[in-house]
Design a protein around this nucleic acid. Structure first.
Length: 478
RNA sequence: GCCCCCAUCGUCUAGUGGCCUAGGACGCCGCCCUUUCAAGGCGGUAACGGGGAUUCGAACUCCCCUGGGGGCACCA
Protein backbone atom coordinates (compact mmCIF):
# COMPACT_ATOMS: atom_id res chain seq x y z
CA UNK A 1 0.00 0.00 0.00
CA UNK A 2 1.52 3.22 -1.18
CA UNK A 3 0.01 6.66 -0.84
CA UNK A 4 1.95 9.68 -1.96
CA UNK A 5 1.01 13.29 -2.41
CA UNK A 6 2.12 16.32 -4.31
CA UNK A 7 1.42 19.36 -2.19
CA UNK A 8 2.33 22.63 -3.85
CA UNK A 9 1.73 26.04 -2.38
CA UNK A 10 -0.28 28.10 -4.86
CA UNK A 11 1.99 31.11 -4.57
CA UNK A 12 3.02 30.99 -8.19
CA UNK A 13 2.69 28.81 -11.25
CA UNK A 14 4.23 25.37 -11.30
CA UNK A 15 7.96 25.60 -11.79
CA UNK A 16 10.59 23.11 -12.86
CA UNK A 17 11.41 21.96 -9.35
CA UNK A 18 7.80 21.45 -8.37
CA UNK A 19 7.06 19.61 -11.58
CA UNK A 20 9.98 17.28 -10.96
CA UNK A 21 8.74 16.58 -7.44
CA UNK A 22 5.24 15.91 -8.74
CA UNK A 23 6.62 13.65 -11.45
CA UNK A 24 8.71 11.56 -9.04
CA UNK A 25 5.78 11.08 -6.68
CA UNK A 26 3.55 10.16 -9.56
CA UNK A 27 6.10 7.77 -11.07
CA UNK A 28 6.62 6.15 -7.71
CA UNK A 29 2.90 5.52 -7.32
CA UNK A 30 2.35 4.36 -10.89
CA UNK A 31 5.36 2.09 -10.78
CA UNK A 32 4.11 0.51 -7.61
CA UNK A 33 0.65 0.03 -9.09
CA UNK A 34 2.07 -1.44 -12.25
CA UNK A 35 3.94 -3.97 -10.16
CA UNK A 36 0.59 -5.10 -8.82
CA UNK A 37 0.46 -3.02 -5.68
CA UNK A 38 -2.08 -0.55 -4.49
CA UNK A 39 -1.04 3.05 -4.94
CA UNK A 40 -2.70 6.42 -4.65
CA UNK A 41 -1.44 9.78 -5.82
CA UNK A 42 -2.99 12.67 -3.94
CA UNK A 43 -3.00 16.32 -4.95
CA UNK A 44 -3.14 18.66 -2.02
CA UNK A 45 -2.95 22.40 -2.31
CA UNK A 46 -1.13 23.91 0.64
CA UNK A 47 -2.73 27.31 0.75
CA UNK A 48 -2.59 28.02 4.46
CA UNK A 49 -0.92 31.34 3.77
CA UNK A 50 -4.00 32.96 2.34
CA UNK A 51 -2.28 36.24 1.58
CA UNK A 52 0.22 34.63 -0.74
CA UNK A 53 -2.12 32.13 -2.37
CA UNK A 54 -4.21 32.87 -5.41
CA UNK A 55 -7.06 31.04 -7.05
CA UNK A 56 -5.49 31.43 -10.47
CA UNK A 57 -2.41 29.54 -9.31
CA UNK A 58 -4.58 26.79 -7.84
CA UNK A 59 -6.17 26.35 -11.24
CA UNK A 60 -2.97 26.92 -13.18
CA UNK A 61 -1.01 24.29 -11.29
CA UNK A 62 -3.69 21.72 -12.02
CA UNK A 63 -3.75 22.65 -15.70
CA UNK A 64 -0.01 22.26 -15.94
CA UNK A 65 -0.05 18.96 -14.11
CA UNK A 66 -2.67 17.70 -16.54
CA UNK A 67 -0.66 18.98 -19.48
CA UNK A 68 2.28 16.95 -18.22
CA UNK A 69 0.02 13.93 -18.01
CA UNK A 70 0.24 13.65 -14.23
CA UNK A 71 -3.22 12.67 -13.09
CA UNK A 72 -4.19 12.36 -9.45
CA UNK A 73 -6.44 9.85 -7.75
CA UNK A 74 -7.55 12.02 -4.85
CA UNK A 75 -8.05 15.70 -4.43
CA UNK A 76 -7.33 18.39 -4.97
CA UNK A 77 -7.72 19.00 -1.28
CA UNK A 78 -7.47 22.61 -0.26
CA UNK A 79 -5.95 23.20 3.14
CA UNK A 80 -7.79 26.50 3.38
CA UNK A 81 -10.96 24.41 3.64
CA UNK A 82 -9.59 22.30 6.45
CA UNK A 83 -8.57 24.87 9.02
CA UNK A 84 -10.88 23.36 11.65
CA UNK A 85 -8.93 20.16 11.54
CA UNK A 86 -5.63 21.90 12.14
CA UNK A 87 -7.01 24.14 14.84
CA UNK A 88 -8.47 21.16 16.65
CA UNK A 89 -5.08 19.51 16.55
CA UNK A 90 -3.49 22.67 17.90
CA UNK A 91 -5.99 22.75 20.75
CA UNK A 92 -5.13 19.18 21.57
CA UNK A 93 -1.44 19.93 21.60
CA UNK A 94 -2.10 22.91 23.85
CA UNK A 95 -4.04 20.70 26.23
CA UNK A 96 -1.35 18.05 26.26
CA UNK A 97 1.29 20.62 27.01
CA UNK A 98 3.08 19.94 23.74
CA UNK A 99 2.33 23.48 22.66
CA UNK A 100 1.88 26.80 24.40
CA UNK A 101 0.57 30.25 23.75
CA UNK A 102 3.26 32.73 22.83
CA UNK A 103 2.65 36.43 23.26
CA UNK A 104 5.81 37.65 21.61
CA UNK A 105 5.14 39.59 18.45
CA UNK A 106 6.88 38.81 15.20
CA UNK A 107 8.92 41.99 15.51
CA UNK A 108 9.98 41.25 19.05
CA UNK A 109 11.18 37.80 18.12
CA UNK A 110 13.03 39.18 15.17
CA UNK A 111 14.71 41.85 17.25
CA UNK A 112 15.80 39.43 19.92
CA UNK A 113 17.16 37.17 17.22
CA UNK A 114 19.22 39.94 15.75
CA UNK A 115 20.54 40.83 19.18
CA UNK A 116 21.42 37.20 19.78
CA UNK A 117 23.25 37.03 16.49
CA UNK A 118 25.27 40.12 17.35
CA UNK A 119 26.12 38.68 20.72
CA UNK A 120 27.34 35.56 18.99
CA UNK A 121 24.51 33.43 20.28
CA UNK A 122 22.61 31.16 17.91
CA UNK A 123 19.32 32.53 16.54
CA UNK A 124 15.97 30.89 17.13
CA UNK A 125 13.11 31.43 19.50
CA UNK A 126 14.45 32.01 22.99
CA UNK A 127 11.60 30.34 24.81
CA UNK A 128 10.39 33.42 26.61
CA UNK A 129 6.75 32.33 26.75
CA UNK A 130 7.55 28.70 27.39
CA UNK A 131 6.78 28.62 31.08
CA UNK A 132 4.32 31.38 31.69
CA UNK A 133 2.10 30.88 34.71
CA UNK A 134 -1.57 31.73 34.76
CA UNK A 135 -1.05 35.18 36.20
CA UNK A 136 1.57 36.15 33.64
CA UNK A 137 -0.60 34.89 30.86
CA UNK A 138 -3.58 36.83 32.14
CA UNK A 139 -1.49 39.97 32.35
CA UNK A 140 -0.29 39.64 28.76
CA UNK A 141 -3.77 38.95 27.58
CA UNK A 142 -5.05 41.96 29.48
CA UNK A 143 -2.59 44.03 27.46
CA UNK A 144 -4.55 42.89 24.46
CA UNK A 145 -1.62 40.99 23.03
CA UNK A 146 -2.60 38.44 20.41
CA UNK A 147 -1.12 35.00 20.90
CA UNK A 148 0.41 32.56 18.50
CA UNK A 149 0.73 28.88 19.35
CA UNK A 150 4.18 27.38 19.52
CA UNK A 151 5.14 23.75 19.47
CA UNK A 152 7.49 22.73 22.26
CA UNK A 153 10.48 20.80 20.92
CA UNK A 154 12.68 18.59 23.09
CA UNK A 155 15.57 20.33 24.85
CA UNK A 156 18.04 17.56 24.37
CA UNK A 157 18.54 14.26 22.67
CA UNK A 158 18.87 13.54 18.98
CA UNK A 159 16.25 13.44 16.28
CA UNK A 160 16.79 10.71 13.74
CA UNK A 161 15.02 9.39 10.70
CA UNK A 162 16.00 7.16 7.84
CA UNK A 163 15.74 8.81 4.48
CA UNK A 164 15.06 6.44 1.61
CA UNK A 165 17.64 8.23 -0.47
CA UNK A 166 20.16 9.56 2.02
CA UNK A 167 20.08 7.02 4.78
CA UNK A 168 20.11 8.05 8.41
CA UNK A 169 19.80 11.76 9.04
CA UNK A 170 20.31 13.12 12.54
CA UNK A 171 20.38 16.42 14.33
CA UNK A 172 20.49 17.53 17.95
CA UNK A 173 17.16 18.64 19.33
CA UNK A 174 18.88 21.48 21.14
CA UNK A 175 19.33 23.11 17.75
CA UNK A 176 15.65 22.98 16.88
CA UNK A 177 13.73 25.71 18.61
CA UNK A 178 10.08 25.95 19.46
CA UNK A 179 8.23 26.90 16.31
CA UNK A 180 4.91 28.52 15.57
CA UNK A 181 2.09 26.24 14.46
CA UNK A 182 -0.77 28.75 14.59
CA UNK A 183 -0.26 32.40 13.77
CA UNK A 184 -1.52 35.12 16.04
CA UNK A 185 -4.23 35.83 13.48
CA UNK A 186 -5.48 32.30 13.98
CA UNK A 187 -4.21 30.77 10.75
CA UNK A 188 -2.46 27.42 10.99
CA UNK A 189 1.03 27.13 9.61
CA UNK A 190 2.58 24.74 7.13
CA UNK A 191 4.15 22.37 9.62
CA UNK A 192 0.90 21.77 11.43
CA UNK A 193 -1.31 21.47 8.36
CA UNK A 194 1.23 19.27 6.67
CA UNK A 195 1.56 16.90 9.62
CA UNK A 196 -2.17 16.72 10.26
CA UNK A 197 -3.01 16.05 6.63
CA UNK A 198 -0.36 13.44 6.04
CA UNK A 199 -1.65 11.70 9.12
CA UNK A 200 -5.28 12.10 8.23
CA UNK A 201 -4.80 11.01 4.63
CA UNK A 202 -2.59 8.10 5.51
CA UNK A 203 0.37 9.21 3.43
CA UNK A 204 2.97 6.45 3.38
CA UNK A 205 5.80 8.07 1.44
CA UNK A 206 6.86 11.69 1.41
CA UNK A 207 8.94 12.48 -1.66
CA UNK A 208 10.04 16.11 -1.83
CA UNK A 209 12.95 18.46 -2.41
CA UNK A 210 16.03 18.40 -0.26
CA UNK A 211 15.38 21.94 0.86
CA UNK A 212 12.82 20.43 3.23
CA UNK A 213 15.08 17.87 4.81
CA UNK A 214 15.73 19.92 7.95
CA UNK A 215 12.06 20.50 8.57
CA UNK A 216 11.42 16.76 8.65
CA UNK A 217 12.43 16.55 12.30
CA UNK A 218 9.80 19.06 13.25
CA UNK A 219 7.08 17.33 11.27
CA UNK A 220 8.02 14.01 12.80
CA UNK A 221 7.86 15.43 16.33
CA UNK A 222 4.52 17.01 15.58
CA UNK A 223 3.13 13.75 14.31
CA UNK A 224 4.30 11.91 17.39
CA UNK A 225 2.65 14.47 19.64
CA UNK A 226 -0.50 14.10 17.57
CA UNK A 227 -0.49 10.42 18.36
CA UNK A 228 0.78 8.96 15.12
CA UNK A 229 1.41 5.27 15.55
CA UNK A 230 3.81 5.10 12.64
CA UNK A 231 5.78 7.46 10.47
CA UNK A 232 5.87 7.74 6.69
CA UNK A 233 9.00 7.02 4.72
CA UNK A 234 10.82 10.13 3.61
CA UNK A 235 12.77 10.53 0.40
CA UNK A 236 14.53 13.82 -0.23
CA UNK A 237 15.32 14.58 -3.84
CA UNK A 238 18.42 16.48 -4.91
CA UNK A 239 17.67 20.09 -5.78
CA UNK A 240 17.56 21.25 -9.37
CA UNK A 241 20.11 24.02 -9.68
CA UNK A 242 21.21 26.51 -12.26
CA UNK A 243 24.05 24.82 -14.16
CA UNK A 244 26.09 28.04 -14.11
CA UNK A 245 25.60 29.34 -10.60
CA UNK A 246 24.87 26.02 -8.93
CA UNK A 247 22.22 27.79 -6.88
CA UNK A 248 18.59 26.80 -6.57
CA UNK A 249 16.85 27.49 -9.86
CA UNK A 250 15.05 30.80 -9.72
CA UNK A 251 13.33 33.29 -11.96
CA UNK A 252 16.50 35.32 -12.12
CA UNK A 253 18.13 32.63 -14.20
CA UNK A 254 15.76 32.39 -17.14
CA UNK A 255 12.62 30.37 -17.56
CA UNK A 256 11.64 28.16 -14.67
CA UNK A 257 7.86 28.23 -14.96
CA UNK A 258 6.48 25.25 -16.81
CA UNK A 259 4.11 27.64 -18.57
CA UNK A 260 7.10 29.28 -20.19
CA UNK A 261 8.24 25.98 -21.60
CA UNK A 262 4.78 25.19 -22.86
CA UNK A 263 4.64 28.59 -24.56
CA UNK A 264 8.10 28.03 -26.02
CA UNK A 265 6.84 24.94 -27.82
CA UNK A 266 8.15 22.06 -25.76
CA UNK A 267 6.29 18.77 -25.70
CA UNK A 268 5.05 17.20 -22.47
CA UNK A 269 6.76 13.99 -23.55
CA UNK A 270 10.10 15.76 -23.70
CA UNK A 271 9.64 17.67 -20.47
CA UNK A 272 8.69 14.63 -18.40
CA UNK A 273 11.51 12.69 -20.00
CA UNK A 274 14.03 15.41 -19.23
CA UNK A 275 12.74 16.07 -15.72
CA UNK A 276 12.99 12.37 -14.94
CA UNK A 277 16.64 12.50 -15.94
CA UNK A 278 17.34 15.26 -13.43
CA UNK A 279 18.31 13.40 -10.30
CA UNK A 280 17.48 9.94 -11.52
CA UNK A 281 19.26 7.56 -13.84
CA UNK A 282 17.56 4.97 -16.03
CA UNK A 283 18.70 1.42 -16.43
CA UNK A 284 22.05 0.94 -18.03
CA UNK A 285 21.15 0.30 -21.62
CA UNK A 286 22.30 3.73 -22.69
CA UNK A 287 18.88 4.85 -23.82
CA UNK A 288 17.73 8.11 -22.33
CA UNK A 289 14.80 8.79 -24.59
CA UNK A 290 12.02 7.27 -22.54
CA UNK A 291 8.28 7.37 -22.86
CA UNK A 292 6.09 7.81 -19.83
CA UNK A 293 5.31 4.11 -19.89
CA UNK A 294 9.00 3.30 -19.87
CA UNK A 295 9.64 5.75 -17.07
CA UNK A 296 6.91 4.15 -14.99
CA UNK A 297 8.38 0.76 -15.62
CA UNK A 298 11.91 1.73 -14.71
CA UNK A 299 11.41 4.29 -11.97
CA UNK A 300 12.91 3.43 -8.64
CA UNK A 301 13.97 5.53 -5.67
CA UNK A 302 17.15 3.44 -5.52
CA UNK A 303 18.38 5.15 -8.65
CA UNK A 304 17.79 8.69 -7.45
CA UNK A 305 21.05 10.59 -7.19
CA UNK A 306 22.32 12.60 -4.23
CA UNK A 307 23.83 15.79 -5.55
CA UNK A 308 22.20 18.86 -7.07
CA UNK A 309 21.30 18.51 -10.72
CA UNK A 310 22.10 21.36 -13.09
CA UNK A 311 19.36 22.30 -15.50
CA UNK A 312 20.68 22.01 -19.05
CA UNK A 313 18.56 23.68 -21.69
CA UNK A 314 20.63 22.16 -24.51
CA UNK A 315 19.76 18.65 -23.48
CA UNK A 316 16.10 19.54 -23.15
CA UNK A 317 16.23 20.96 -26.67
CA UNK A 318 17.76 17.78 -27.97
CA UNK A 319 15.14 15.65 -26.27
CA UNK A 320 12.36 17.85 -27.58
CA UNK A 321 13.67 17.34 -31.10
CA UNK A 322 13.81 13.63 -30.50
CA UNK A 323 10.20 13.62 -29.38
CA UNK A 324 9.08 15.77 -32.29
CA UNK A 325 10.66 13.19 -34.55
CA UNK A 326 9.06 10.30 -32.70
CA UNK A 327 5.55 11.69 -32.91
CA UNK A 328 3.40 10.41 -35.75
CA UNK A 329 3.19 13.23 -38.30
CA UNK A 330 -0.57 13.43 -37.94
CA UNK A 331 -0.18 13.89 -34.23
CA UNK A 332 2.44 16.58 -34.69
CA UNK A 333 0.20 18.35 -37.17
CA UNK A 334 -2.63 18.23 -34.65
CA UNK A 335 -0.45 19.90 -32.07
CA UNK A 336 0.91 22.56 -34.39
CA UNK A 337 -2.35 23.47 -36.06
CA UNK A 338 -3.91 25.41 -33.17
CA UNK A 339 -0.67 27.32 -32.72
CA UNK A 340 -0.54 28.17 -36.41
CA UNK A 341 -4.13 29.33 -36.37
CA UNK A 342 -3.47 31.44 -33.36
CA UNK A 343 -0.50 33.04 -35.06
CA UNK A 344 -1.64 33.37 -38.68
CA UNK A 345 -5.40 33.29 -38.39
CA UNK A 346 -7.51 32.23 -41.33
CA UNK A 347 -4.51 32.44 -43.66
CA UNK A 348 -3.19 29.23 -42.13
CA UNK A 349 -4.72 26.77 -44.55
CA UNK A 350 -4.80 23.37 -42.81
CA UNK A 351 -3.42 21.53 -45.84
CA UNK A 352 -0.52 23.92 -46.14
CA UNK A 353 0.14 23.72 -42.40
CA UNK A 354 0.20 19.95 -42.62
CA UNK A 355 2.59 20.03 -45.56
CA UNK A 356 4.88 22.47 -43.76
CA UNK A 357 4.87 20.38 -40.60
CA UNK A 358 5.93 17.40 -42.62
CA UNK A 359 8.87 19.38 -43.97
CA UNK A 360 9.76 20.67 -40.52
CA UNK A 361 9.49 17.47 -38.52
CA UNK A 362 12.88 15.97 -39.41
CA UNK A 363 14.77 19.02 -38.19
CA UNK A 364 12.69 20.97 -35.69
CA UNK A 365 13.60 21.68 -32.09
CA UNK A 366 10.37 23.21 -30.82
CA UNK A 367 6.77 23.61 -31.89
CA UNK A 368 7.22 27.37 -31.92
CA UNK A 369 10.12 27.03 -34.28
CA UNK A 370 7.92 25.05 -36.64
CA UNK A 371 5.25 27.72 -36.50
CA UNK A 372 7.88 30.41 -37.13
CA UNK A 373 9.33 28.62 -40.10
CA UNK A 374 6.03 28.22 -41.93
CA UNK A 375 5.20 31.89 -41.63
CA UNK A 376 6.37 32.80 -45.12
CA UNK A 377 3.56 30.70 -46.56
CA UNK A 378 0.87 32.77 -44.92
CA UNK A 379 1.79 36.36 -45.64
CA UNK A 380 0.66 38.51 -48.53
CA UNK A 381 3.33 39.49 -50.99
CA UNK A 382 2.77 43.08 -49.98
CA UNK A 383 3.60 42.24 -46.40
CA UNK A 384 6.41 39.82 -47.02
CA UNK A 385 9.66 40.98 -45.44
CA UNK A 386 13.13 39.52 -45.36
CA UNK A 387 14.74 39.57 -41.94
CA UNK A 388 17.44 42.27 -41.91
CA UNK A 389 20.11 39.80 -40.95
CA UNK A 390 19.12 37.53 -43.79
CA UNK A 391 19.02 40.41 -46.27
CA UNK A 392 22.63 41.11 -45.28
CA UNK A 393 23.40 37.55 -46.27
CA UNK A 394 21.75 38.13 -49.64
CA UNK A 395 23.71 41.30 -50.24
CA UNK A 396 26.93 39.63 -49.19
CA UNK A 397 26.53 36.74 -51.60
CA UNK A 398 28.79 36.62 -54.64
CA UNK A 399 27.09 37.03 -58.04
CA UNK A 400 23.72 37.03 -56.33
CA UNK A 401 22.00 39.16 -59.00
CA UNK A 402 23.07 36.76 -61.67
CA UNK A 403 21.79 33.84 -59.63
CA UNK A 404 18.41 35.45 -58.99
CA UNK A 405 18.00 36.22 -62.67
CA UNK A 406 18.67 32.60 -63.48
CA UNK A 407 16.25 31.43 -60.79
CA UNK A 408 13.53 33.70 -62.15
CA UNK A 409 14.12 32.41 -65.62
CA UNK A 410 14.00 28.82 -64.43
CA UNK A 411 10.91 29.15 -62.27
CA UNK A 412 9.06 30.91 -65.07
CA UNK A 413 9.41 28.03 -67.46
CA UNK A 414 9.97 24.79 -65.52
CA UNK A 415 7.36 22.11 -64.91
CA UNK A 416 5.53 22.78 -61.69
CA UNK A 417 6.64 19.74 -59.72
CA UNK A 418 9.02 19.71 -56.79
CA UNK A 419 11.72 17.77 -58.60
CA UNK A 420 11.79 20.27 -61.41
CA UNK A 421 12.40 23.04 -58.90
CA UNK A 422 15.80 21.73 -57.94
CA UNK A 423 18.17 24.64 -58.47
CA UNK A 424 21.48 22.82 -58.67
CA UNK A 425 21.34 22.60 -62.48
CA UNK A 426 20.60 26.31 -62.60
CA UNK A 427 23.62 27.32 -60.56
CA UNK A 428 25.74 24.64 -62.15
CA UNK A 429 25.12 26.32 -65.50
CA UNK A 430 26.58 29.49 -64.01
CA UNK A 431 29.53 27.60 -62.65
CA UNK A 432 28.42 28.26 -59.09
CA UNK A 433 27.99 25.72 -56.32
CA UNK A 434 24.40 25.77 -55.12
CA UNK A 435 25.58 25.47 -51.52
CA UNK A 436 27.32 28.81 -51.86
CA UNK A 437 24.24 30.75 -52.82
CA UNK A 438 21.57 28.68 -51.10
CA UNK A 439 21.23 30.91 -48.02
CA UNK A 440 20.56 33.92 -50.23
CA UNK A 441 17.84 32.12 -52.17
CA UNK A 442 16.31 30.81 -48.97
CA UNK A 443 16.18 34.34 -47.61
CA UNK A 444 14.60 35.72 -50.74
CA UNK A 445 11.83 33.10 -50.76
CA UNK A 446 11.28 32.39 -47.05
CA UNK A 447 12.45 35.58 -45.38
CA UNK A 448 15.10 33.70 -43.39
CA UNK A 449 18.38 32.33 -44.68
CA UNK A 450 17.72 29.18 -42.70
CA UNK A 451 14.34 27.53 -42.96
CA UNK A 452 12.24 24.80 -44.49
CA UNK A 453 13.69 22.91 -47.49
CA UNK A 454 13.69 25.37 -50.36
CA UNK A 455 12.33 23.51 -53.37
CA UNK A 456 9.40 22.09 -51.42
CA UNK A 457 8.81 25.51 -49.98
CA UNK A 458 8.69 27.13 -53.40
CA UNK A 459 6.27 24.47 -54.52
CA UNK A 460 4.00 25.12 -51.56
CA UNK A 461 4.21 28.85 -52.15
CA UNK A 462 3.18 28.52 -55.77
CA UNK A 463 4.82 29.76 -58.94
CA UNK A 464 3.47 33.28 -58.96
CA UNK A 465 4.24 34.09 -55.36
CA UNK A 466 7.69 32.60 -55.65
CA UNK A 467 8.41 34.65 -58.72
CA UNK A 468 7.05 37.77 -57.09
CA UNK A 469 9.44 37.40 -54.21
CA UNK A 470 12.49 36.64 -56.24
CA UNK A 471 11.74 39.52 -58.60
CA UNK A 472 11.19 41.88 -55.71
CA UNK A 473 14.51 40.92 -54.20
CA UNK A 474 16.21 41.27 -57.56
CA UNK A 475 14.79 44.78 -58.00
CA UNK A 476 15.77 45.76 -54.48
CA UNK A 477 19.28 44.65 -55.27
CA UNK A 478 19.39 46.83 -58.38
C1' G B 1 27.61 32.24 12.76
C1' C B 2 25.32 27.36 13.72
C1' C B 3 23.15 22.84 11.65
C1' C B 4 22.17 19.51 7.60
C1' C B 5 23.15 17.51 2.74
C1' C B 6 26.43 16.71 -1.25
C1' A B 7 31.30 15.92 -4.15
C1' U B 8 33.12 11.23 -11.41
C1' C B 9 34.09 14.78 -18.21
C1' G B 10 31.46 21.96 -19.29
C1' U B 11 26.26 19.59 -18.03
C1' C B 12 23.09 15.01 -16.77
C1' U B 13 25.01 10.51 -15.16
C1' A B 14 26.95 4.80 -14.95
C1' G B 15 30.05 2.83 -11.42
C1' U B 16 28.62 -0.21 -4.67
C1' G B 17 37.10 -3.25 -3.74
C1' G B 18 39.85 -6.20 -8.82
C1' C B 19 35.55 -6.53 -15.14
C1' C B 20 38.04 1.05 -15.03
C1' U B 21 44.32 2.40 -19.47
C1' A B 22 36.49 5.09 -15.74
C1' G B 23 31.18 3.68 -19.66
C1' G B 24 26.80 6.35 -21.80
C1' A B 25 23.91 10.90 -23.02
C1' C B 26 23.82 16.37 -24.12
C1' G B 27 27.18 20.09 -25.68
C1' C B 28 31.68 21.05 -28.32
C1' C B 29 35.33 19.74 -32.48
C1' G B 30 36.29 17.01 -37.15
C1' C B 31 34.69 14.04 -41.30
C1' C B 32 30.65 11.95 -44.32
C1' C B 33 25.80 12.72 -46.25
C1' U B 34 22.86 16.72 -47.84
C1' U B 35 17.47 20.99 -50.60
C1' U B 36 21.26 26.40 -47.04
C1' C B 37 20.81 25.75 -41.61
C1' A B 38 19.46 21.52 -39.32
C1' A B 39 18.53 16.34 -38.82
C1' G B 40 21.24 11.67 -39.64
C1' G B 41 25.96 8.56 -39.80
C1' C B 42 31.09 8.00 -38.19
C1' G B 43 35.15 9.61 -35.23
C1' G B 44 37.35 12.80 -31.48
C1' U B 45 38.00 16.18 -27.01
C1' A B 46 36.96 15.90 -21.83
C1' A B 47 36.29 13.76 -15.21
C1' C B 48 37.20 10.24 -10.23
C1' G B 49 38.67 18.09 -5.64
C1' G B 50 43.19 17.38 -2.04
C1' G B 51 45.57 14.60 1.94
C1' G B 52 45.83 10.54 5.04
C1' A B 53 44.08 5.44 6.61
C1' U B 54 42.33 0.24 5.65
C1' U B 55 43.66 -3.48 1.84
C1' C B 56 47.64 -7.67 -2.07
C1' G B 57 44.45 -4.04 -4.63
C1' A B 58 40.62 1.68 -4.11
C1' A B 59 36.26 6.20 -8.15
C1' C B 60 34.08 2.75 -4.86
C1' U B 61 35.28 1.81 2.78
C1' C B 62 36.89 5.27 7.02
C1' C B 63 38.94 10.13 8.79
C1' C B 64 40.52 15.19 7.92
C1' C B 65 40.65 19.36 4.69
C1' U B 66 38.66 22.01 0.74
C1' G B 67 34.66 23.23 -2.22
C1' G B 68 29.39 23.63 -3.44
C1' G B 69 24.40 23.70 -2.00
C1' G B 70 20.36 23.86 1.46
C1' G B 71 18.22 25.19 6.19
C1' C B 72 17.99 28.20 10.68
C1' A B 73 10.24 32.94 9.52
C1' C B 74 3.77 34.24 12.81
C1' C B 75 6.56 31.41 3.84
C1' A B 76 5.94 26.61 2.05
Amino acid sequence: MVKVRFSPAPTGSLHIGGARTALFNWLYARHHARAGGEATFVLRIEDTDVSRSREEWVVGIQDTLRWLGLDWDEGPYLQSARFDLYLDAAARLLEQGDAYRCYCTEDEVKQRNEAAAEAGRPPGYDGRCRALDAAERAALEAEGRPASIRFRTPDDGVSTFTDLIRGEVRVDWSLIHDFVIVRSDGAPIFFLANAVDDLDMGITHVIRGEDLIDSTHRVLALRRALGASDQPQFAHLPLIVDAETRAKLSKRHGAVALEDFIAAGYLPEALTNYLALLGWAPEEDGNEVLSTAELIEQFDLDRVTHSGAGFDRDKLDWLNGEWIRRLATDELVARVEPLARERYGAAADPDVVAAAVELAQPRAVTLVQIVDQMGFLFVDESEFVIEPESWDVVVGTDRVAEVLDAVIDHVERCDWVVDALALQPVTDALGIKFRKVAPAVYAVVEGFHRGLPLFDSMFLLGRERTLARVRAARNRLA
